[in-house]
């Protein structure tokens, strides 16, 4: 009896370890394979020149511009809205029907798939508001997508600021807004930045929402109402239409590196910030 359970224990431990190795291994392999195939394609020309022959040759410069514009635009819109919402949730209202409603909205938004955002953006920005396929439509749609992430992370960051700091500020005659701007926000900033970086990471990789709102033009846009193609859309089109596997790998490598870099910065910021608060706060 005891022997059997010990055998089973060892068996299960083996299974679990193997599964973990498998899971992590597959993921690492994916990144490794993309980089292995794609890094050789990268060169100054690839990154700085526009594509030729619909992407069969040349570089991916306009798509890099597109990704940067859309992501920056999304952050510019979503960050203030998200941080303000988080301030309200963390510092002003804590419970009650109003707050539950807001949280419901935020959590639901977080679960909505990108294609629905794409359809919405198409219906609302491109058609109803008449912006057409444009940087503006794409950026606003992406802003809606990353809003929940920013709200969630910013709120957590603010709640992590020790309550004692607020009490000190209030006891010295500080108003609520003064306490928020002079004590809470400065200490929550790294966490808030992490949330923004996570949003950036998501925007960079987004395809479905972008393709139906920003279009797929290969020209560098001159105004916010011009259409633009992002790296992920370019990559998708190259791969699916079989235009150029080589350039597809190259684009994928840039994409993967960008996302990894952004997320790495985000987590590094977060961990350093948490360590500082934990070590310093009493």
């Amino acid at each position: 009896m005891i022997l059997r359970s010990r055998q089973r224990d060892r068996l299960m431990r083996g299974v679990l370890t193997a599964s973990a190795v498998l899971a992590v291994g597959v993921l690492v392999l994916i990144v490794g394979y993309v980089l292995w195939q794609g890094l050789p394609v990268l060169s100054r020309a690839f990154l700085l020149e526009p594509p030729a022959k619909m992407g069969r040759a040349g570089g991916i410069f306009p798509t890099i511009v597109g990704t940067v514009l859309l992501t920056a635009g999304a952050v510019v819109v979503a960050a203030p809205l998200g941080v303000a919402t988080a301030i309200y949730l963390a510092e002003y209202a804590h419970q009650g029907r109003l707050v539950s409603l807001i949280r419901f909205g935020t959590e639901s938004l977080a679960g909505i798939p990108s294609i629905i955002f794409g359809v919405f953006g198409f219906l609302f920005f491109v058609i109803y508001l008449g912006m057409g396929w444009s940087v503006l439509s794409g950026a606003l749609t992406l802003a809606g997508m990353i809003l929940p992430t920013i709200i969630r992370t910013a709120e957590e960051a603010m709640l992590a600021v020790p309550r004692a700091y607020r009490e000190v500020s209030y006891s010295l005659g500080g108003s609520r807004w003064q306490t928020i701007t002079r004590v809470v926000l400065p200490n929550a900033l790294p966490g808030i930045l992490t949330g923004i970086m996570l949003g950036v990471g998501r925007s960079v990789g987004e395809t479905a929402a972008v393709i139906f709102t920003a279009g797929a033009s290969l020209r560098v846009p001159h105004s916010v109402l011009d259409p633009v193609r992002t790296m992920s859309v370019h990559f998708y089109l190259l791969a699916r239409e079989g235009i150029s596997m080589r350039n597809a790998y190259g684009t994928a490598a840039v994409l993967v590196l960008s996302v990894l870099a952004v997320n790495f910065v985000a987590y590094y910021l977060m961990h350093r910030h948490l360590a500082r608060l934990r070590g310093a706060g009493r």
């Binding site: 700091y165 500020s169 009493r282």
Partner: peptide, 19 residues
């Protein structure tokens, strides 16, 4: 209330230096 709190200062049990 803010002015009241300025006029009535408080020292807490644990020293809480602001960061």
């Amino acid at each position: 209330v803010d002015d009241l709190r300025r006029r009535v200062g408080m020292v807490f049990a644990l020293p809480i230096p602001l960061p």
